[in-house]
């Protein structure tokens, strides 16, 4: 007599919880027109997904050689690249290619020196105003957490980078703007950034626009969520542990309650 309604009410409790979660609107909501972002298959999707290191390294190369001329990644340090599978020597070599301002020294002077792994990624512009002035009034956004800062995440980044085309008939673009199928409002200030064979990959991967877009989206996802692999592997362990504990807790509860029914 006691077991059944209890089970029913438990189900109800979960139904309420489920309804609360289900009723929560998905954050993705573009202004006016709803733009459908196609689903791109990435290595880091799913519960057990991990970053494809080779792809992310190629993505870093695309960022360094293409995106970095306008977009900063001010939250990233060169040392972070070790987590992408580069050696410390490789990272030191990459860092040393840039000149960073340091100081003041003992004479009170600022000076330039070669970058170190502990330095942040060098930003292309000294400040927001310079970035805006150099880019027709539209400052290029920082890319450190861009994959978390756009609805659709890496799927959106891939769609955006491959979504350039001539404007459809009847659409007139403002001066200096480009047409993009996936950008909200379709008018984007960034000119088509990726063209075939723009970079040369050391591992022989053909530098098609799709490959470059996928690689850079993977790299940016990693930059936004460097903890993703650790988080999920910990999550699997935690949930396995809790599931077993739930079984034990339920058994204890049944035993304690056996004489009360």
């Amino acid at each position: 007599m006691f077991g059944k309604p209890m089970f029913r009410t438990t189900l109800k409790a979960f139904a309420v919880l489920g309804a609360l979660v289900a009723a929560t609107p998905t954050p993705a909501r573009a202004a006016g027109e709803v733009i459908h972002i196609p689903d791109t298959r990435f290595s880091f999707e799913g519960v057990f997904g991990t970053y494809d290191r080779a792809s992310a390294q190629r993505g870093f190369q695309v960022y360094k050689e293409v995106c970095a001329s306008c977009h900063s990644m001010r939250l990233m340090s060169y040392r972070n690249l070790v987590d992408l599978g580069l050696t410390e020597q490789q990272v030191a070599a990459i860092a040393s290619q840039v000149q960073v301002q340091d100081g003041p020294n003992d004479e009170g002077q600022m000076f330039e020196r070669a970058g170190r792994p502990s330095d942040r990624f060098r930003s292309p512009f000294p400040n927001m105003q310079a970035a805006r002035a150099a880019n027709n009034g539209a400052a290029p956004p920082d890319l450190s957490v861009i994959a978390k800062a756009r609805a659709g995440g890496a799927d959106y980044l891939y769609a955006l980078l491959t979504g350039y085309s001539d404007p459809p008939a009847g659409v007139t673009l403002a001066e200096g703007m480009s047409y993009n199928a996936y950008f909200p409002g379709h008018q984007i200030a960034m000119a088509r950034p990726l063209n075939p064979d723009q970079v040369e990959f050391a591992d022989g991967t053909p530098a098609t626009m799709e490959n470059m877009a996928r690689d850079v989206a993977t790299f940016l996802q990693w930059a936004a969520e460097p903890e993703l692999e650790e988080r999920r592997s910990m999550g699997v362990k935690v949930i396995l542990f809790l599931t077993i504990l739930a079984g034990l807790a339920y058994a204890v509860k049944r035993k304690v309650w056996a004489d009360a029914h």
Binding site: L245, A246, A249, Y250, V252, V256
Partner: peptide, 12 residues
């Protein structure tokens, strides 16, 4: 005992 079981489900 009953709260403990509920607590573990909540943690999951």
């Amino acid at each position: 005992a009953k709260d403990s079981f509920g607590l573990v489900i909540y943690f999951i």
